[in-house]
Amino acid sequence: MSVKTILSFIILITISFSSCRQIPKDALTIATAANMQFVIQDLMTSFSEQTGIDCNLVVSSSGILTAQMSEGAAYDVLLSADMKYPQQLFKQGLTLDTPVVYAFGKLVLWTMLELDELSPEVLIDQNIKFIAMANPKTAPYGRAASETIQQLGIQATIEKKLVYGESISQTNQFITSKSADIGFTAKSVVLAPVVAGKGHWIEIDPAYYRPIEQGIVLLKANPDKFSKAQKFKEFLFSDAGKNILNKFGYSTKS
């Protein structure tokens, strides 16, 4: 086989593959915080069934998504894990509307180990070597975990055991791989079908941390998708949307 034949083969294969993965151009691009990655699938399916609008999904941490959007990433909807990042985009004049809270997240303590008793007090146990939490500086669930630890007054005792995931997803990875013995994560994660029944978890008393207000904001990037984005927002606040959110452990305003 000559070089030419091989080259044309490669080109042919590349072309045929690239035509396979066509994403509809008019699909709505939803950027979502890592804690929403499980619930969003259900939300999207249900939304698409109801409205016939296709959606693309981008999952990352709220901070990274915000940084990307500030630099021109053409996402249509941001489902953030807090209000800070949507507010930031609003201040930059990149949004269609003002950010609103669509759900309140719940913090849980999750472990793959068989412990005699699962409670926040177990964190000071000597057998617990590593405690995973998301980075409190950038992830809202990390912030809530950090506040909980301070409220419990065990910050100094467990400081050396704390390991930080860059987002709630990485924190989950530390917990499920048992690299960390126990960790703080979002309730929506432990209720997700993929991990349901894995390990043990307890909900942290919401009195220990400030509410995790999750915000939605619509972006200006693609003018032709404004009405679709608006429909998604309406769906999120409809009974159907709220039911899905509640099913995954979020609380919503009635």
Binding site: S61, G63, I64, T66, A67, Q88, N135, K137, T138, E166
Partner: peptide, 11 residues
């Protein structure tokens, strides 16, 4: 390198 990632994320 991690600190840079963090700071970008924290804006």
């Amino acid at each position: 390198s991690i600190a840079i990632y963090d700071e970008v994320e924290a804006l």
